[in-house]
Amino acid sequence: MKSIRIHTYNDKPVAEQIPTPAVAKDQVLVQVQATALNPLDALVVSGVAAQFFAISLPLTLGTDFAGVIEKVGSEVSQWRVGDRIIACADASTCGGLAEFAAVPASACVALPQSMSAIEGAAIPIAALTAWHSLFSSARLKAGETVLIHAGAGGVGTFAVQFAKKAGARVIATASGDGLELARRLGADEVLDYTSVDFTSVVHNVDVVLDLVGGETQQRSFEVLRKGGRLVSTAMPPDAHMAESCGVTASMFYAAQYASQLDKLVSSIVEQGVEVVIDRVVPFDAFDDAWERLVSGRARGKIIVQ
């Protein structure tokens, strides 16, 4: 079968033929229809992710995908052949960038009838990160103000909508056509980070969702009110700076919330949350998708079909 793999860290992912994976007793074999690219994939390729996950090489990339169950393991009772599912594979094994993927049955949730495989594949890590960083980590409440950096990206497009629907006032940073996208998704104020210093116009916010890291994160401490909360998905915040500013700051990892994907998918459907797709790229044009991912300019999710 076709797959996208790496054999050593820092090498460009390559397409190659490999055997269809065997199915363990607690797994299902999925005929993959769509796979989302995530910044996590770039961290896997660079070797950074190996500091947090026990990764064995060579590795087929892709944690978030959707498709149809082709085969079930002997101990699997919740799924049947032909079921449409969304899968969130473990980052240590991945496997979704292939024609078939074997994953634990517990890593799958039902793909709603109203949703395409492309939309379903776009949800797992990005939506889980957006939802739980805002509400489980930052404890954002109705009436509060949140500053979301990179509001037009894969996580940001979900975060803007989740925060707005929860009754928060949303300020987002973006650039180019991302400015109008963030406004359309519900942001009350959108700042062009290429021309506006956000610290000069944003003050006393309750929450900062940092999806960028670096200097952007460091300067974000200035705009929080005393007792405010900063949550970052990009890099560990400076604990000493947080203490000196009288705020709390934490790093967010989505993996611990994967078991709640089913509830989140249902909520996305019920609330009419838009799943924003940057582009859909054929499997044979994977290099184009990868180039778009590492550029950091995607508006929403990049999908390999």
Rank of each mutant, 00 (worst) to 15 (best):
V76H: 09
Q17F: 12
V48T: 11
Q161T: 05
A138Y: 01
P237N: 08
V196C: 13
H240N: 13
T145Q: 00
L59Y: 06
V45G: 06
V231H: 00
P112W: 04
G82L: 07
I69M: 14
L59H: 04
R183D: 01
G95K: 02
L179A: 13
V28T: 05
H240L: 09
M1G: 14
A239I: 09
G272Y: 06
A234R: 08
A127D: 02
Q260P: 07
T20E: 09
S92D: 10
E243H: 14
I148V: 01
H203Q: 13
T216S: 10
L224E: 10
H7W: 11
E243T: 13
G272C: 07
P124T: 06
S136K: 04
G153K: 03
P19S: 09
N10P: 00
T216P: 08
M115V: 10
K165R: 11
E70G: 15
S116H: 03
S46T: 12
V231K: 07
D288A: 11
G178T: 00
V72R: 10
I86L: 12
G156I: 01
F283K: 07
A234K: 07
Q51L: 12
A172M: 10
W131F: 04
S200P: 05
L128F: 00
L43G: 11
E215N: 08
K71F: 15
C108F: 13
V48I: 10
Q256M: 04
A150N: 07
A54S: 15
A110V: 14
Y193C: 04
A107K: 06
E189Q: 07
N10M: 08
G96E: 10
D64W: 03
D11A: 14
L185R: 02
E119G: 07
T173D: 14
Q161R: 03
E70N: 15
T60N: 06
L61M: 09
T129S: 06
L40V: 13
F286W: 04
S259D: 06
Q51P: 05
A258S: 09
T8P: 02
V170A: 03
R184G: 11
L224K: 11
S220Q: 09
S267R: 00
A130G: 10
G95T: 02
T129N: 04
G153C: 04
G153W: 00
E99K: 07
G156E: 01
A127I: 01
R84E: 11
T248E: 11
V196E: 12
E180N: 11
R279A: 15
